[in-house]
Write a protein that binds this DNA or RNA. Structure first.
Lengths: 138, 138
DNA sequence: GTATTATCTGCAACGATGTTGCAGAATATT
DNA sequence: AATATTCTGCAACATCGTTGCAGATAATAC
């Protein structure tokens, strides 16, 4: 509760109930969420547009980042502290084909790739699909 | 021309002018294309819906595969021979932030990633963003 | 070459997704 | 408590993607 406010203040955002609720939804569910997921969870309390704008704001402020899989666009919390100025961009995301959930594997580094000459890389984004530990156990 | 027909026949598809045109657009432009790109190129000749269905069919038959970047969904030719039964899934895509084009780096392998225990990977998809050789030269 | 069958295409309508402008509401500041 | 700032909800719109159906086209059989 109090922590949510801290996060918002730390990114120079006013604390509103919508922002608190969106943020806590990201924290409670641990996987990446689409706009639709959030609308499903909070849609009765807030307007679709407000949720879109909240996501956009969180993106710009570096609170969340985009996650892409074969189904489309989702968002996940940035655990490395990102800010408006400096985004930490390299991510590995794992999507489970059984439960459909996608999450961010925080502590892994993407190994170096030997690109053909002339290609100058700036950011890397690796999506691995397979089976997650929870689904493997069942 | 003749080659297009061969490709279509090889995937058990009827040769229609729309399919030939979509396929040759993929071959001529070498980068990944969105539905909008194809609509821009062929939209005066074919209905939007037909282009959507052509893409869907090509996907199912393993002629093209999805390419995702931060802007959305595109498609690129499968150069490794994919079929309806067996798709070759591991890809490295490079998106140039200068010209905006995305293409598939065919001959690279994605290096192994040491996943936490319990994660069973099936396919890998790496998106690298940066500057491409053409834009670097200019 | 013509008839038959299977498939593809265009049209219309619809649903989902995402954006913009603006007035009123809520927050932070004094 | 008053003010300035910024958020939110509403309405309207633009884009993207899907479905049903009738007519057109391609492959097959004759």
């Amino acid at each position: 509760m109090e922590q949510l406010r801290e996060t918002l203040k730390g990114h120079h955002l006013r604390t509103t109930t919508c922002r608190e609720d969106v943020l806590s939804t990201f924290i409670n569910r641990k996987n990446a969420l689409s706009h639709g997921d959030l609308e499903g969870a909070l849609g009765e309390n807030y307007d679709r547009v407000t949720i879109y704008r909240t996501l956009k704001t969180f993106l710009e402020k570096g609170i969340i980042h985009k996650v892409l899989d074969d189904e489309g666009l989702r968002y996940a919390l940035c655990s490395h502290q990102c800010s408006e100025e400096k985004h930490h961009h390299d991510h590995i995301h794992f999507k489970c084909n059984a439960c459909g959930k996608t999450n961010c594997l925080e502590n892994l580094r993407i190994p170096n790739v030997a690109l053909p000459s002339g290609y100058v890389p700036e950011s890397f984004n690796l999506l691995i699909q397979g089976t997650c530990p929870e689904c493997l156990a069942n």
